[in-house]
Simulated assay, not measured.
Amino acid sequence: MIRDILVNLAQGTDKDVARDFAASLAASFGAHLTGLTVAYEIDVPPFYMGALPTDFIDAQVLENQAAADKAAQGFTAAATAAGVTHDVRTLTASLGVAASTFADMSRLFDITVVGQPDPDRPGPEEVIAETVLIESGRAVLIVPYVQTKPFTPDRAVVAWDGSRAAARALAEALPLLHRTKDVEIFRVTRHEEDEDTAGQEVARHLARHGVAAKVRRLPVSSGEPIAAAILNEVSDQGADFVVMGGYGHSRLRELVMGGVTREILATMTVPVLMAH
């Protein structure tokens, strides 16, 4: 069951889709909701510090703190309106430290909700989302910046490739799938198969958890992008959310995501539950 939810709070916008979706998710499960708001520190290389006026730095610090406070107030209002128990935590840190701290926090929550980066409004969401996905070890639910609906468990697509990450995502998604009316296991394969035994095994496993699922397999040629096939299936099925593994690794603190994962994160139109 989902009893404890963490959400990263966006700043500079009155419409925080991750916050609102997390509130509806918490209301559906009767879960406690925790929001994290960050007063971002100014990350200036030492050799530039002397060139910046002290009053400019002080003003920026105050502005960032005000943005964090406003996000906290918006969270409190949204959680109260949703009728869920809640608390808000405030962190003062650089983006890198904030992302790592958020990932550490998420290990003690059942699910973490973050917003998809909006290409028209650059912000910390991309770093936050990738860090928590790769470092937390728990389920991460990414909400698209165009999301308008609350949590709606009518239809779900489980993108299954047999990987460790896909298995983690499936296990973490079970509480959501138990609430979902129509579950499809979607397999993208690079060649024809006589029988999709892998998909049927996933359906068997879900059935023993009381989740009925249908299986669909789509063979694609080597030149066709897998991410596009998944997103097309989501659109065709009118799915409300997707479950899939998130692939990536960290090298010299620069996150490098797998191609399918990165493409999904960039072009998703419905919430995606990922685990690594």
Rank of each mutant, 00 (worst) to 15 (best):
V84Y: 04
G245H: 06
L91K: 15
P53R: 00
T269E: 02
V211C: 01
R190I: 04
E195F: 05
A18M: 13
V17M: 08
A171Y: 06
A203Y: 07
L206E: 03
P153C: 08
I128R: 11
I57Q: 02
R3T: 14
N64D: 00
A139E: 07
P271H: 00
P45S: 05
A71G: 06
W160K: 08
L6H: 11
G238K: 09
R164N: 10
K181C: 11
A77D: 13
T34Y: 06
I5V: 15
G223D: 07
S163C: 09
V132Y: 04
D196T: 04
F75Y: 03
A99Q: 03
Y48K: 07
H178D: 15
A51N: 11
T148E: 02
P225G: 01
P271V: 01
G223E: 07
T90F: 08
R138F: 10
R190L: 05
A239F: 01
A66R: 07
D43E: 02
R262Q: 12
D14H: 13
F186P: 00
A81W: 08
I185P: 04
A39C: 03
A79Y: 02
I226G: 08
A229P: 03
G210S: 11
A239Q: 10
E135I: 14
P117E: 15
L25R: 09
T76R: 07
V256W: 02
K70I: 09
F151N: 05
E126K: 15
D16T: 06
S24Y: 09
A93G: 13
A139Y: 06
D4F: 13
N64A: 05
A159G: 02
T90H: 13
A51C: 09
E254W: 04
V114H: 05
V7D: 11
D87S: 05
G246D: 03
V220F: 03
D55Q: 02
S222F: 00
V158A: 03
P225V: 05
Y145W: 14
G35C: 05
D110R: 14
D4R: 15
V234P: 13
G123L: 13
T269R: 10
K70M: 09
V270I: 06
V242K: 06
G245W: 03
L52P: 01
P119S: 14
A26V: 14
M49L: 10
A26T: 14
V188T: 11
H32P: 10
L174K: 15
H32E: 10
D120P: 13
M274F: 00
I226Q: 07
A99I: 09
F102Q: 05
A10Q: 14
T80I: 02
L265C: 04
I230R: 12
H205D: 08
M268K: 09
D196K: 04
G246Q: 03
Q116I: 14
L231T: 15
S106K: 06
A23F: 10
K181E: 14
E193Q: 05
N232A: 09
M257K: 10
I128Q: 14
M105D: 12
E195R: 09
V256G: 00
A266I: 07
E125A: 15
A159I: 01
Q60H: 08
G83E: 06
G50I: 07
L9I: 10
A169Q: 03
L9E: 00
R164A: 04
E63Q: 00
S24A: 07
T261Q: 01
L91C: 11
